Amino acid sequence: MNSRRSFIQKVALTAASIPLLRFQSLAAPPASDEPVLRVALMGLGGYANRVADAMKSCKKAKLTGAISGTPAKLTDWQQRFGIPEKNCYNYQTFDQIKNNPDIDVVYITTPNALHHSQVLRVAAAGKHVICEKPMAINAKEGQEMVDACKKAGVHLLVGYRMHFEPKTLEVIGMRNSGEFGKIMFFQGQCGFRIGDPTQWRLNKELAGGGSMMDIGIYAINGARYMVGEEPIWVTAQEVKTDPVKFKPGVDETIQFQFGFPSGAVASCLSTYNMNYLDRFYLNGEKGFAELQPSTGYGPIRGRTNKGELTAPHVTHQTIQMEEMADIILRGKQPLIPVNGEEGVKDLKIIDAIYAAVKSGRKEPLKLV
């Protein structure tokens, strides 16, 4: 444990990888003359409610608007979160946010296939965008979203909450300091048994796929930030045991493998048919790290060859919104990027995974 304590002391002034110090900074509000990020949430489903509840604890971000196609939800949010009626919009009228100074950024939590058009409209209205992952249903759409936001001069961020999670950052800090030695192997297992067969996540037109477009992206993105490199090839195999529930174009289970420039390899699993799969394992020549659960809403639990990870749990969405406020308003650079370019890289990998399933061959990747 002494080497880890020494590492934390050594980088305390520069890194976002020191969880305890991060929480002390989150607890303190910004100086009185610093702006607060004013947020409108689009798509008022279960996850949007989770974000809104988490933002009650934010000091640097405030919920000020809501966008939904369901009038009853807008009325409910006005009452529960104190949102003025003038800051509420539906999907036909939300372009009018262009004239609303109460809204700085729109956080989009709608089904995957809607992200592309909605991001383009928000950017055209001159507002910053936070978009849930996956950012789009393919890399072409994702790049168009990045280009549109650049042209409009607005930020495009992706809801990668794990990029700010303390135990995850603790592992990355140890890797960066060389405590695991040369990284050799990563394993990412992400899955659960999905329920209601009529939900949008099992509708290809809305989801863009199946488990890979929902839970699988955690293993894809996790492999990249845990290994600390960009993969250069992928292979993949699909298994489907229930073709009625998982219709054509909606994947049930996909195993996929990456190769990295250093020689490290990754083995990952994405599934909608198995529970108790939420584990990351990183192996190096001098040590290892394991997170289990690794991507759930928390608390994340982890250990390394040097002992248990002990960073305290704070609601992921609270940390995420505080950090994104700093990125948008104060130009902060996060330890792990959360910008649109990061989202496009994951989409390129998803495209390649689906291509590898069809071809049965090793598909090359060029992300840098």
Results as ranks from 00 to 15, higher is better:
136 A>F: 01
120 L>G: 01
156 L>G: 03
187 Q>P: 05
119 V>T: 01
208 G>I: 00
167 K>N: 13
195 G>N: 15
145 M>P: 00
118 Q>I: 04
175 R>M: 07
206 L>C: 10
166 P>K: 13
125 A>T: 02
163 H>T: 11
200 W>C: 12
112 N>F: 05
139 A>P: 05
111 P>E: 10
201 R>K: 14
144 E>R: 00
119 V>H: 07
164 F>E: 02
146 V>K: 06
113 A>M: 09
145 M>L: 12
162 M>R: 02
126 G>Y: 14
142 G>H: 00
194 I>A: 09
109 T>E: 09
125 A>Y: 12
176 N>E: 12
120 L>H: 02
110 T>D: 08
113 A>W: 05
147 D>Q: 05
206 L>K: 12
110 T>C: 11
188 G>F: 12
194 I>T: 06
169 L>C: 08
114 L>N: 13
117 S>I: 01
153 G>R: 01
148 A>L: 14
192 F>Q: 13
176 N>W: 07
136 A>I: 07
173 G>D: 11
130 I>Q: 04
143 Q>C: 06
160 Y>F: 15
162 M>C: 04
204 K>S: 11
208 G>V: 11
152 A>G: 00
144 E>N: 00
130 I>E: 05
201 R>N: 11
204 K>F: 12
138 N>A: 04
137 I>R: 06
206 L>F: 09
125 A>V: 13
213 M>A: 12
112 N>Q: 10
165 E>F: 14
123 A>F: 06
109 T>S: 12
141 E>W: 00
197 P>W: 13
116 H>N: 03
211 S>V: 00
151 K>Q: 08
183 I>S: 01
147 D>E: 12
112 N>T: 10
131 C>V: 15
213 M>G: 10
187 Q>W: 07
123 A>N: 05
208 G>C: 06
179 E>P: 04
118 Q>F: 15
154 V>A: 03
131 C>D: 06
139 A>N: 06
176 N>T: 04
211 S>L: 11
145 M>N: 00
197 P>C: 14
214 D>L: 12
117 S>W: 05
133 K>I: 06
150 K>M: 07
158 V>G: 13
171 V>E: 07
171 V>K: 08
177 S>Y: 08
170 E>D: 14
201 R>A: 10
180 F>E: 00
204 K>V: 14
142 G>Q: 07
125 A>M: 13
162 M>T: 15
189 Q>K: 10
196 D>Q: 15
174 M>D: 02
206 L>M: 12
113 A>C: 06
185 F>S: 11
204 K>D: 05
156 L>R: 01
154 V>Q: 03
183 I>G: 01
140 K>D: 00
148 A>C: 13
148 A>H: 10
116 H>Y: 06
132 E>V: 10
110 T>Y: 15
128 H>T: 03
197 P>E: 13
132 E>H: 12
203 N>V: 02
177 S>E: 07
137 I>E: 07
179 E>R: 15
110 T>Q: 06
159 G>K: 08
160 Y>S: 10
157 L>K: 02
173 G>E: 10
202 L>P: 03
214 D>V: 07
